[in-house]
Computed example of a mutant assay.
Amino acid sequence: MKIMQLEYFLAVVRYNSFTRAAQFLHISQPSLTTAIKKMEADLGYPLFIRTTKELKITEKGIQFYKYAQSLVNHYHKTLDRMYDLNISDEPRLKLSILESTSPWVALVIQQHHKTYQKQRYQIIEQHNMESIISSLLNFDVHFALSNEKIDRDTIVSVPLYNEPYVLIAPKDTIESTTQKATDLQHLPLILTNRQYQVRKHLDEYFKQMNIHPNIVLEVDRFETATTMVHRGLGYAIIPRFYYQSFSANQLSAIKITPIIERTIYINYLEQRKLSEIAKTLIDECINYWKIQ
């Protein structure tokens, strides 16, 4: 079975339509239908149930989809790496960052690029510790930022800075510049979803303070949280430095007492032989916070 056949199958699942999948793939619908039927014949079981009114994926089709998706992703990732090596002696520098770190990371990369003008960069956002560790161990990124220390023998985890959390509110809705922790439970709060480290920090803080928060919205990104605050749907708790971002304009940042904060770390794989250019970028990230 060829990668192209798997991509045909994934397209049909994605669009839930042979017609739309064929349009996306720029092939004729009969050709796509024939290709899927051949896959089903080779596998020995149907991937879809087709009627004149609808198209449904079978249970075995779902299991096959998971494997096919993984294989195709791995294939393209491999091609991407080979492409990097072909067009440049120095592959793209790939780094994993947190949403709240993008403003200062942009400044560091801007400075780094002045010295290494031919260097290219790729940035991904990851907020789940398992994903961050996996990216490092699988050599998917040269280094990663995290809001927790990574305790792995093979990973070097260097603290960069401490960052407090603040309460974000519409202008003039809260007169005080500080907010006691005990008063938070009286406010409609917008927090990150539970799978993220930020939420774990906040939940631990609430538990320690014996607070039962009134959570009205849970979101993935701080940008979404601040948008909801702009709409008057509640108050968000976000990292202090994210308040400097564009999406937090026209909102008030209120200190929380007792303070709740996190530490940002830069992490890289000890066994990986990093290029001098990659090492320089890591050093510039570290030095940026030494002079702040």
Rank of each mutant, 00 (worst) to 15 (best):
Y243K: 09
L281K: 08
R231W: 03
S275V: 06
L233T: 03
P258S: 10
R231K: 10
P239I: 04
A236S: 13
S275N: 09
A236T: 06
I237P: 00
L274Y: 09
I264Q: 07
K255E: 15
A253K: 10
L269S: 03
E284C: 03
R240W: 03
Q271H: 11
I260K: 05
Y265Q: 07
Y242F: 15
Y242R: 05
R231M: 11
I254R: 05
I259A: 15
I259R: 13
I282Y: 03
V219F: 02
T257S: 12
H230F: 02
Q271M: 06
T257V: 13
I259H: 09
A225E: 09
G232Y: 01
L233S: 07
R272P: 00
N249L: 10
T263V: 14
K279N: 14
T226C: 15
N267K: 12
I237S: 03
Y265D: 09
L233D: 10
I266Y: 03
A278I: 14
I237T: 05
Q250K: 14
L251K: 05
Q271E: 13
T263S: 14
F241V: 11
R221W: 03
I238C: 05
N267Q: 13
F222V: 08
F241S: 11
Y235L: 06
A253I: 07
T226E: 04
H230M: 04
I286P: 01
I237G: 02
G232W: 00
I254M: 05
V219A: 09
K273Q: 15
R221V: 01
K279C: 09
G234Q: 06
Y235T: 06
A253L: 06
E261F: 00
L281Y: 04
E270K: 15
F246C: 03
F246Q: 11
I254W: 01
M228G: 01
R221F: 11
T263Q: 15
M228N: 09
V229D: 05
L274D: 08
N267V: 06
T227W: 02
S245R: 12
N267T: 11
T227F: 03
L251A: 08
R221T: 15
